[in-house]
């Protein structure tokens, strides 16, 4: 038996934006984790790595988040799901909105770490917090992906 369904054509572009934003966002978060780990292990010369992590989050992750979130709202509106009580929609909105808060905190932490590194300080604790929170956010998006794909009742 086939479970696959072909959606109306008008839903495709918003869904494309949503998926493109989400996949790029998660990819950029993974890049940020790798760069943050490199920065924490870099010893005294970590300023360039901290700057790259900060820019990845600020110039990369936030715009990708916006594309994901705008696409989500657009496709939810097309499917008349904005006021839905379905749990998968609730999980999606919770992770997206909570994720924005965490993303802002990540940018603040990475920005502080960059400022400290630039002044010759050792922001190892800030880098570890930023790495841990970024991993948590990737995990949360994994849960959202599971909810979007399997649509639990």
């Amino acid at each position: 038996m086939s479970y696959a369904a072909v959606r109306p054509d008008s839903w495709n572009f918003p869904l494309f934006l949503h998926v493109l934003g989400a996949t790029t966002l998660v990819g950029l978060l993974a890049v940020a984790v790798a760069v943050l780990i490199a920065a924490a292990r870099a010893g005294d010369d970590r300023t360039a790595a901290v700057r790259l992590a900060f820019r990845t989050l600020l110039i990369g992750a936030i715009p990708a988040y916006l594309v994901m979130r705008i696409g989500a709202e657009w496709i939810a509106d097309k499917e008349h799901l904005t006021d839905s009580d379905a749990s998968w929609i609730g999980i999606g909105y919770s992770v997206a909105d909570g994720g924005l808060l965490i993303l802002i905190i990540l940018n603040v932490l990475a920005g502080l770490a960059y400022r400290r590194a630039r002044r010759g300080g050792q922001p190892v604790a800030l880098l570890r917090w930023t790495t841990g929170l970024t991993l948590l956010l990737i995990l949360a998006y994994g849960v959202a992906l599971w909810a979007m794909a399997t649509k639990p009742a």
């Binding site: 989400a22 996949t23 790029t24 998660v26 990819g27 950029l28 993974a30 890049v31 790798a34 990845t56």
Partner: peptide, 12 residues
């Protein structure tokens, strides 16, 4: 997600 993540990583 992993495949597009690799594109993002190599692009970085």
């Amino acid at each position: 997600f992993a495949l597009i993540g690799s594109v993002v990583t190599f692009s970085t």
